[in-house]
Design a protein around this nucleic acid. Structure first.
Lengths: 343, 343
DNA sequence: TTGTAGGCGTTATCAC
DNA sequence: GTGATAACGCCTACAA
């Protein structure tokens, strides 16, 4: 809706161009000219004004400027949960990229359900953001699509690892399906044939792609690979428990692909507990190529899905759109498998 | 300075209360009244206006509102590098806490050098933020202090794990010195006597405290503990190399405390490579009690310095200050040692 | 109940 | 070179 909360006045008035003008004995326009480095002001008065600006520690009001310029110089970053290290890296690069262009970033943790996402989109609309980056395939939903075409229809929206068919939406995708297939192929090349897939919940479009990548490749080796696909909560414990379950139901398992590194780390702990040698008897692969993968012992083979590059690209596409440069609306990055000790 | 960059006009004009007023055949003030749920407007016209607001998808301009209310409903979060998982958690809780109060957060990665920090503070000043949270002891510097008293003197500033003696600054500290002493005591209780300390660079006030905690406790056991204090870059590799160095220079070492978990994880890899049993022959402790500590094998004993609680408190103190409730300006949280398998 | 006028801080346009 | 004046979108007296 159009009212977020009770917005109450308060605030200590700061120095304005009127104050400066009065002290300098000139008009506000002259002060404005000096501030914006525009020509047409006597060198002496310019010096005087500059001195006063410095002395009174003048700080231009970005809100007022935004009003006249019709431009907030703000872009929004939407992320389900910024604690997800995977998204944080992206947010970092986006912020760094945008700050150099004079933009500030408003970051909102939307949570997972659609209502919250829609609400966040409305907040960004009120703030008159000039562009939005959404991190993660969870934003690839009908509700979000509707909200964008309602509240964000005039600004570029880049979705990292997602896509919506709207004229102002850019999609930076990763070939996760192909990537997981490559994981399967890699395991097969290591002699593995009984491969399971453990996926984090809740399901999102990205996970669907990963799973189908797994299933597609597996059909060559197993009759009913569906039964080897598991879901669990995205945590160390989730990976641990799911792995125990796989081992219990399919003692012959000799390879496991996890939808994220954290799950694989948990799985590794389960395998250690069960005294199953990795990669001796069983090989595992994670996804995201995060620090977690490097910390585990043995270090994890992991699929680098290029999320960092994707984030930077997303920021660039938003900026380019704002600057009138048009871009391809949908691009796909190809993942790399980083082979380490766990396979 | 007062000009960050060339701010150019652009933007597609959106629906204003004037548009709505015209369509409804009423004055803008009536529309405003309806939007702000103020009394004194006929039920029928209110209904009509509401309908039009909905239909035209009216979105209030937060910049304009901010101007009249003298309140941006924005708070700034300063963090040296948000990819530091330790800070991310904090940022998450701060954002969650503030969004419920109608605030948005602008996050700026300041980098480590003072000039950048000062610049970031000026940006926040232009945006008329109503409060600031700074994450990390790196903000405890004279340059930052000066910048705050120049550009942020009228808004509450909470520093997580830091403190500056200014009337509007709140400090949420952690007893890191005592915490590290507790680490030493713990190692001693496990029979360790030759304990080294490996610290991440660049040095910051927090690290200074950690080191003095180490040195103070060690004086009881060693004559010249200074020589056992090492510094290295904050990375897996940094921990790895520093650990090799310690082992080379002090073969008798039987305990290592690392200033952050990530370093300890790197150290663990070095110990594995050298086939040194942990905790059999050597015990190690990390700090932060992060996910890294849980992933390592053996899992890391780690000092929980309550950064999450500190972040939430910081947000609360800023909010309280804005709402006129006064708080203690400096509080200290006491760390807990989380004992796991590495000691 | 409703409308008018003034102002929030800034910039742009046009006179002088 | 300089200074009124009118926006930008909104809100709040005050008047009707």
């Amino acid at each position: 809706m159009f009212v977020d909360s009770v917005w109450q006045g308060k605030g200590s008035l700061s120095v304005t161009i009127y104050d400066i003008a009065k002290m300098a004995g000139v008009s506000p326009s002259s002060v404005s000219r000096v501030i914006n480095q525009r020509p047409g002001v006597n060198t002496e008065t310019r010096q005087l004004i500059l001195k006063l600006l410095e002395k009174l520690n003048y700080s231009p009001n970005a809100l007022a400027r935004g009003l006249v310029y019709q431009s907030s110089k703000t872009i929004g970053i939407l992320v389900a949960d910024i604690r997800n290290i995977h998204h944080t890296d992206g947010a970092y690069h986006i912020e760094r990229e945008l700050i150099t262009q004079g933009y500030c970033c408003i970051i909102l943790n939307t949570g997972i359900d659609d209502a919250e996402k829609v609400h966040s989109i409305e907040i960004l609309s009120h703030r008159r953001v000039e562009g939005v980056v959404m991190m993660g395939s969870v934003f690839q939903s009908d509700a979000v699509k509707a909200a964008i075409s309602q509240s964000l229809k005039d600004v570029p929206v880049a979705i990292v690892n997602g896509w919506l068919d709207l004229p102002n939406v850019y999609g930076i995708l990763s070939d996760e399906q192909g990537g997981v297939s490559a994981c399967v192929e890699h395991l097969v090349s290591k002699g593995r044939r009984h491969i399971a897939f453990i996926c984090d919940q809740p399901y999102n479009p990205s996970n669907t792609l990963k799973e189908s990548g797994y299933l597609n490749s597996m059909r060559q080796w197993e009759k009913d690979p569906k039964a080897w696909s598991y879901r669990t909560e995205n945590s160390l414990e989730g990976g641990y428990q799911a792995t125990l379950k796989v081992l219990g139901e399919h003692p012959s398992v000799d390879g496991i692909i996890y939808s994220v590194d954290l799950l694989a780390a948990g799985g590794l702990q389960a395998l250690h507990a069960k005294r199953i040698a990795v990669p001796g008897r069983l090989s595992i692969i994670g996804i995201n190529n995060s620090t977690y993968a490097e910390i585990c012992s043995p270090t994890l083979t992991s699929l680098d899905n290029k999320r960092m590059d994707a984030s930077i690209l997303a920021a660039r596409m938003v900026i380019d759109h704002i600057n009138g440069k048009s871009n391809t609306r949908r691009i796909m990055l190809l993942p790399d498998l980083i082979v380490r000790k766990s396979t």
